[in-house]
Design a binder for these strands. Structure first.
Lengths: 133, 133, 133, 133
DNA sequence: GTGGTCTAGACCACA
DNA sequence: GTGGTCTAGACCACG
């Protein structure tokens, strides 16, 4: 597994898990249709409570990133990922604004900020072979 | 006052306040040396408890954005804002990575993501006379 | 518990608690990785409010002496204590200078002052097996 | 005047003033019998409230470091400084213990700590020509 | 059950 | 009147 959790972090474990799975999909490490470990086995692997894993899976299902199949178990959404919803754009705006403001106050230039955003975007999709829409 | 809080939001009130003050500094609405309202009056204005305001002020003091002056009360840091610390860069990286990943998965292009980052950065510093690029 | 508070003292309770915990770590009574009581139980034990305990814990967390672990609760920093930071050296200097000055004015000799410093340093690390000199 | 105040400091202004005057006496800059500025003029010089100066002077009078003469005004104690009282020794112990503990935890050696104490003691009495009891 | 957050009301030191 | 401290009681997210 490519998942790393920081138990000292302020961000809840379930949220870290959600993030890492999304990053896994973005990078191509997880392809549409790919199966995910069962709640129980992943919980064991990571040394965390299975309720926590469950919470992450449920959130990702609600968002449309995962599907829960009665037979195949939990798999990565095979029928196309959800697009840019209003809710997401709103969240993106809010967080970017906050980060940009602090960056500006700390003297980070626009160029540096933009550069960082771009390079982090690129990093996340490294393994996808550029089949970017 | 230019501060707007969403009391229903899941992000803590004190964190929203912190953000808004930082954005105020970034935009130039709050200049170095400017006094901030007392915890009591701001709390009253915003309809929140003074302890909540206090928590925000203290966080900003720790970060070096505010000073508690024995005569002037709470003021915006007059002696130069803190630079880009390791801690901030780390936070920036972590959050940008997470946002970029979800954006990519949802089909937002690199150009769109970069564009959004840049424009939000610009928005935050509109009132500052562009003495930062 | 080895903690004694003087509720009548002019030094805030939370500061006394901070001191005592640091002394506990120095003496070896608290080892890296050791769990601390929950804010509730310690508060009850000491007859103080849990928020006061919380404040102490948070200060110690900021300084890097404690960690808030999502599974183990609050524990003594297991990954190496913070070193001699500029801020600490500054504080040390300021306080020692003040104490030394008053001691000198009151006729305490350099030898007596030095002797007292040394012996108090030794006292604090008695139980640590001398792996620090 | 050799007095410097830090209005951003956590230590109250009156306490800083007390400290600096004691250090002045320790260093010999203020000799027994020397007059101190009036409450009013010192307050003006330092840009602080005269009540604050008053508080400092009163504390120092209580401790026996100053005398208030009806004619000469405020002067440095000419009839011998107060010795090492129980209260002072207690205060000294408490603060040194606290500092020593934190120093030890941060990895400062006994030698370094002792060295620092000694050198700060020496610094305070530099200008006194060694007429140390 | 844990820490985090928020509210509320009170006292005090400080300036 | 200001911030700092302490107490108290409540709700919530987390695991």
């Amino acid at each position: 597994m490519f998942i790393e959790l920081d138990l000292q972090s302020e961000t809840p474990i379930y949220a870290q898990l959600v993030d890492q799975i999304v990053e896994g999909i973005a990078s191509g490490a997880l392809q549409p249709g790919d199966p995910l470990p069962s709640v129980r086995s992943l919980g064991e692997d990571l040394g965390i409570n299975l309720h926590t894993v469950n919470k992450s899976y449920n959130l990702l299902k609600q968002e449309g990133f995962l599907q829960v199949h009665r037979k195949k178990g939990v798999i990565v959404q095979p029928d196309g990922m959800p697009g840019v919803t209003d809710a997401f754009e709103e969240k993106l705006r809010r967080q970017l604004r906050s980060l940009a403001a602090e960056a500006a106050v700390r003297g980070m230039t626009e160029a540096a900020f933009t550069q960082m955003s771009t390079s982090l975007y690129r990093d996340t999709i490294t393994n996808r072979g550029g089949e970017q829409r």
